[in-house]
C-alpha cells in the first residue's frame, strides 16, 4: 500500500482549495470581491481562481461593499451561488444594510420561495499587527441577525470542510476567517479532503476532566496552549471548538460541561454583549445542577480595537485564561 505524501498546507491554501473545488463542482458558484481576481486577494486565498475559471466567475468588483453584497443578492435571486469576499472585518460594515435587511430575511419574506444561497467570507480578528479597522471581531453583530449562519474554522482541515459546507448550504452563511491563522500549517492532504459536513457541529479538540474551555476561531490555539500549561497546575482542561456560532451546538457543549462541571468561554470579541454572554447563559440554563462555579468569560476588553503596539494587552492570552480557570471555585470542592 502506498502512503499518500501529506504535505503541510496553510489555512489560506485550504480555503483557496475549497473555493476551487466548489467552483469546479458547481458552475453556479461565483467568487466576487475586491482584489480577488488578478491579485488573488490580499491574503491570496483566491489565488489562481480567475486564471482557472475566468474573470466572469472570479470577479474583481468596484470598491463598494454594499454594492458587492447587493449585486450578489441579485445574482443569487437568479439562481447563482455567489461567494463574496469582504476584504477585512471592519470593511464589511458598509454591507450591513444589505446583509440585515435582505440577505438574512429574503427566504422568510418570500415564504421560502426565494432562498439566497450566499457565502460571505470575512477575515476577522486581531493579532497580526494591523492598524485600525483591520482587526475587529464582528461576530456578535452577525450572531444577532436571525436568518444567517455564522461559521468560523480554527484548523486547516476545517477551513476546507466548513467552507465547502457553507457554499453548499441553502442558507446564507457568514464565514469568518481568523486572519492570524491564515498562515498556520497543518499536515492536511488536499487530495483527500475531509468529508463535507453540514455546519453546526462543535468538536472536542482536547479531552479533559477539570474544566471546559469553550472557544472558536483564533482563540483555539491559545486555549490549547493554556490547556497544556494548566497541567503543571494540576488541571486537566477540555477544549471545545465551536466551529459554528449559529447554529449553536448546545449538545456537544452541554455534554462537555456536565462532564467537567466548570466552564470558561474564551474569545477575542468584547465581553459585554459578546458571544460569551449568550454561551454562558445557554450553558447555565442547561447545566446548572452540574456546575461547580459560575461560567466565566475571557474576552477582549470592551474597547475599540487597540493600536498594534498595544494589542497584546487586549487579546486573551494563556495567562488570562489560566487566571480565569483559577477562579472557578476549586476550594468549594473539598
Amino acid at each position: 500500500m502506498t502512503t499518500v505524501a501529506v504535505k503541510p498546507a496553510t489555512m489560506a491554501q485550504a480555503l483557496g482549495r475549497a473555493l476551487r473545488d466548489a467552483m469546479a463542482d458547481d458552475p453556479t458558484v461565483h467568487v466576487m470581491g475586491e482584489d480577488v481576481g488578478t491579485l488573488g486577494g490580499v491574503f491570496r486565498v483566491t489565488d489562481g481562481l480567475a486564471k482557472e475559471f475566468g474573470e466572469d466567475r472570479c470577479t474583481d468588483t468596484p470598491l463598494a461593499e454594499a454594492g458587492i453584497l447587493g449585486t450578489a443578492v441579485g445574482m443569487a435571486m437568479y439562481g447563482l451561488r455567489p461567494v463574496v469576499e469582504m476584504q477585512f472585518d471592519a470593511f464589511a460594515y458598509p454591507s450591513f444594510e444589505q446583509l440585515i435587511s435582505h440577505v438574512s430575511r429574503m427566504r422568510n419574506r418570500t415564504r421560502g420561495a426565494m432562498p439566497l444561497p450566499l457565502t460571505i467570507r470575512v477575515p476577522y480578528g486581531g493579532g497580526i499587527g494591523g492598524v485600525e479597522h483591520h482587526s475587529d471581531s464582528s461576530e456578535a453583530y452577525y450572531m444577532a441577525t436571525p436568518g444567517l449562519h455564522v461559521v468560523t474554522p480554527a484548523t486547516v482541515a476545517d477551513a476546507y470542510g466548513l467552507l465547502r459546507a457553507a457554499i453548499a448550504s441553502d442558507d446564507p452563511v457568514v464565514f469568518l476567517e481568523p486572519k492570524r491563522l491564515y498562515w498556520s500549517k497543518d499536515s492536511w492532504n488536499p487530495d483527500e479532503p475531509p468529508a463535507v459536513e453540514p455546519v453546526g457541529r462543535a468538536v472536542v479538540r482536547r479531552s479533559g476532566r477539570s474544566a471546559t474551555l469553550i472557544t472558536y476561531g483564533p482563540s483555539l490555539p491559545v486555549c490549547l496552549e493554556a490547556a497544556e500549561a494548566a497541567q503543571a497546575e494540576g488541571w486537566d482542561l477540555e477544549v471545545v471548538d465551536l466551529r459554528s456560532l449559529v447554529p449553536f451546538d448546545d449538545e456537544t457543549v452541554s455534554a462537555s460541561v456536565r462532564h467537567t462541571g466548570r466552564a470558561v468561554v474564551v474569545h477575542e470579541s468584547g465581553s459585554f454583549g459578546g458571544p460569551g454572554g449568550e454561551i454562558a447563559a445557554r450553558v447555565t440554563e442547561r447545566c446548572f445542577h452540574y456546575l461547580e462555579a459560575p461560567v466565566l468569560r475571557v474576552a477582549g476588553f470592551d474597547i475599540p480595537y487597540p493600536p498594534p503596539m498595544l494589542e497584546r494587552h487586549h487579546l486573551p492570552g494563556v495567562d488570562r485564561i489560566l487566571d480565569a480557570v483559577a477562579r472557578l471555585q476549586w476550594e468549594a470542592e473539598n
Binding site: A66, G70, T71, V73, G74, Y78, L80, H102
Partner: peptide, 13 residues
Amino acid sequence: TQLPHAVGLAHAA
C-alpha cells in the same frame, strides 16, 4: 437597496 439586486440579477442573466 433593491437597485443593486436588479444589477446583480441582470448581470447573472
